[in-house]
Design a binder for these strands. Structure first.
Lengths: 354, 354
DNA sequence: TGTTAGCACTCATTTTGGAAGAGTGCTAAT
DNA sequence: ATTAGCACTCTTCCAAAATGAGTGCTAACA
């Protein structure tokens, strides 16, 4: 028994076992079929007979790194096996990395488009499913408000939140207002509300504000409502996905039952949003994370793996991107692609700043 | 041979044949399995032996209304058969119609949300896939522009198009501008551009405008660009879909090949957009339309039917909704649901107007 | 003591050959 | 014109047999 609990359990494995395990997983990632002792005996550089391999495999199975789907089938990696592989065995093979920057900058002028593009590129590059979250602050704050009359009894309310998030609302009002009133309202609203977040807009403040505007308190009421709603709306998580149909390419996921559940998860997005808000909001999970099988908290993904990364839009504003594929996904490639994407996104966002 | 070419070809069918065909299609809609002569002989009120039915079926097949998947299987309707059924044989059975209004009004405050909701409700109610297009004018026109300084060298440009479509752009400018300049720019922009569409913003006008603003012509240039882009963007078709995974519920569509293609079509949406802009933009197709099998111009939908309807957002602004399902979809229900939805949407939009 | 060849055994998959069943087309009788 | 009857054609279902991949174990070997 090894002495260390965390990060070193695999000390129980000698070098040869590690190599064999690695060979098994690699082969399985390729083929998706249970791999037998004979295959490995030919595959590896350590010249061993299939019989020896069998013995080792038997051990590895006992230790929980591989699984036999049924007697007299080859072995497939268990979640524990994958975990070990991802943590220590994976060797970054060099591979050309697609430069996505050009594709990206060109098409997208708005953040939403950009993120959707990112998702699409990821899906196309990896042949898995991708998801990208829209970054959001923990708390939004009113930066600037502007009211303008655009029709007889219709006001346009422009709400600018921090980070220059802009929201528009059309407000119907019964009383017609002349220019002066609108001007006054603008001043009052801005002096009262600038810099405030949703929690600061409370009854006391509302009353104060209403006192200032006299007969227009109804409209102010509506406006405040809309502001609150806009802030709340912007605080909602938003997710873009792409390549959902890619999962149909992997036989182990594409039987009706599983595929249906998975596709529904991607279409509905509700679960994905929960996933984001729950588990992945921890400040710690910054780098690239791999969740294997049941490590993902979504039931329908129990046969999938999820690789996530965090990008930084600006100082303190983070979003996530994720790749979902079969457990036997090409972890190397996915991790590489994500790393690559992160630096490219950094570039883009930095440049936009200027 | 019948004398009339269009809409009356089925005159070649006598009453009994019609009844039999109707019975075949109805049964097939129910079961999804080829239907045999014996079934019909029991099913119909016209007491005929299976042998007689067989003869009639043989005729119907020769005429192209039904198909035999293989010798000694029952018959299934051909596209031509479905067409006849939808055009003339379908009898509107009474059924409770869900009142979707409440669900709708409650949740949606913005048009996009509303349309997405509509799509979702349709999909849930019918168990098929639904799509809803965002309505759009043929040509947008600038109604109102507003520039405000929200940061040292960042301007917020609010663009209001007709029908109160609002767009925002953030514009970076090198020169810092005082309040007065912004005010002046606002006036100039509005006087020059109000009421103009994209085609009216030509070189001549641009030059005129630039002359007015002197040193700020660079910024004006950017602004005009952004306006043009905004108008163009708003003119792009937009489609919301829901219930794509529903197609997996129908065995005849859910084999990997077909399902994959279909789901991709729904995810990608590009083809759907083309479909909308091409075929369905004709002013004629106002009412409820049914496209069967190859009548839909999308290859992947050749085993599907598509039922579309047009809703009116306001005078002259139309959008489409569509239901996509297997050819043996429950046409009655779908048509009823759509009719119902149309009136409910009318209600909602009328009320919003006030 | 670790490695290997050999062999019996297991179990999933594929193949095969009916047998059953559904449905037709045709013919002859009504 | 309708129908009963029958031979015929297919698909589908099922079970038995063949195949084959892969294992575990044992005995021999270095």
């Amino acid at each position: 028994m090894s002495a260390n609990k965390k990060g070193g359990e695999w000390m129980e494995l000698d070098d040869r076992k590690l190599k064999i395990l690695q060979a098994i997983i690699k082969t399985y990632l390729d083929t998706g079929e249970p791999v037998g002792s004979r295959t490995i005996s030919k595959y590896t550089d350590l010249n061993l007979s299939s019989a020896t391999i069998r013995n080792e495999m038997s051990d590895l199975e006992e230790m929980g790194y591989i699984i036999q789907p049924h007697t007299s089938a080859g072995r497939i990696p268990s979640d524990k096996g994958y975990r070990l592989y991802v943590d220590t065995l994976m060797e970054s093979k060099e591979q050309e990395v697609t430069d996505m920057r050009n594709d990206l900058i060109e098409k997208a002028d708005r953040l939403e488009n950009l993120l959707q593009q990112v998702a699409k590129l990821l899906a196309m590059n990896t042949n898995y499913t991708s998801m990208v979250t829209k970054p959001r602050y923990n708390s939004y704050v009113v930066k600037f408000l502007q009211l303008s009359e655009i029709e007889q009894d219709k006001l346009l309310l422009v709400i600018v939140l921090n980070d220059n998030v802009v929201k528009n609302r059309i407000i119907n009002c019964d009383i017609s207002m002349d220019n002066e009133v609108v001007l006054k309202l603008n001043i009052v609203l801005n002096t009262f509300l600038q810099g405030l977040g949703i929690e600061a807009i409370n009854i006391g403040l509302i009353q104060q504000l209403k006192d200032q505007v006299g007969e227009y308190s109804d409209i102010v009421s509506t406006i405040l409502d809309e502001i609150a709603r806009a802030i709340k709306e912007e605080g909602e998580p938003e997710i873009y996905t792409s390549g959902a149909t890619n999962i149909l390419k992997y036989p182990e996921l594409s039987d009706k039952e599983k595929a249906s559940e998975l596709l529904y998860t991607f279409e509905e997005k509700k679960l994905l949003k929960e996933l984001i808000t729950d588990k992945f909001s921890d400040e710690e999970n910054r780098g690239i994370q791999v969740y294997i099988g049941n490590e993902t908290p979504i039931e329908s993904m129990k046969d999938c793996s999820l690789v996530t990364a965090t990008y930084e839009l600006k100082e303190g504003v983070y979003g996530k991107v994720g790749i979902i594929g079969p457990k036997r996904m090409d972890y190397e490639k996915v991790v590489k692609t994500l790393q690559n994407l992160m630096t490219q996104l950094d570039d883009i966002f930095k440049n936009k700043e200027e």
